[in-house]
Amino acid sequence: MAERLLEVNDLKVRFATEDGIVQAVSGISFELERGKVLGIVGESGSGKSVTAMTLMGLTRGVNAAFEGEVLYKGTDLLEVSDRDMQEYRGNELGMIFQDPMTSLNPVYRIGEQIVEAIQAHERVDKRTARARTIELLRQVGIPNPDTRVDNFPHEFSGGMRQRAMIAMALSCNPSILIADEPTTALDVTIQAQIVELVSRLKDDFNSAVIFITHDLGVIADIADEIIVMYAGRVVERGSKRDVFYDPQMPYTWGLLGSIPRLDRPRPERLHTIEGSPPSLINLPDGCKFRPRCPHAFEKCKAEPGLENRVETPGHFDRCWLDVEFKRSHRDETISGGSAEAA
């Protein structure tokens, strides 16, 4: 059995703001094993980035309150001191951010920034660190790494900057790579390259990946397990096959239906999830998706628990609807009724 790297138990994150308490994450649990890719999917404001940043210890502050556990190889990262967290960050967990344009310092050369990251964690001299940087740039597919290492970020294209960020995140050989919307700011062609790169590097570095995105299509290729988040909660969780082929949560259907698909005939109208995600300060009662759910009924006034309601073990959802009802009605949402045509 593969080594379990990360175990998150009922993690809750709250922020005190001028407008009130923001319930950014309200109870999320998952495990991650070496060699696996976990996809976290949801709209802006669903708590997916806060979850990732909390794992990295980046949300700590006077206005933040945490509950639950984040066990990394048995140590609770929420309890670790700020100083010790430095050691985990980079060494054990690496992170790639969404916007490669703003996450590199424009006045330092690419190489210097990666060398700095290596030297922050390991006692190596500059020359060794530089050699390793060049090797890393080669591994992430930067052409002519020995000259490119001395370029400034503005001399790199968007895709190359994201590759450089990935090289930096991997510089200290972390066991877990957290990618927070790494492809959203990029062209589709570059997006495909980056997704492939992440999946290849996962094998090369023998690590695990948490891939955060708002677009289910992006992770159809690489995710092993998928968590769908809404309003700070996990609303569906299961293997890739469960989530794509037997989705149980109407919100997941909506996400699937919103993607314009090339493998299907063009529909008259795209499916949309009406309205917008709820404010995390004033959450609706009952099921948080109820105000936007076309199938909501009386029972939804009470919030359903995250339970296994189907035959497949390990497939959880938060929906009161009858499983058979869902199976017969979801295609209207997912493929706009054109499922027969496919």
Binding site: P143, S157, G159, M160, V188, T189, I190, Q191, A192, Q193, E196, D215, L216, G217, V218, A220, D221, K240, R241, F244, Y245, L256, I259, R261, L262, D263
Partner: peptide, 22 residues
């Protein structure tokens, strides 16, 4: 071929033409 398809089986089977470089 670069447009993602939200269907794991199709995504796996189809031929992806990865354009090298920029």
């Amino acid at each position: 071929s670069a447009v993602p398809i939200p269907d794991p089986d199709l995504a796996e089977k189809r031929e992806r033409i990865v354009l090298e470089g920029d």
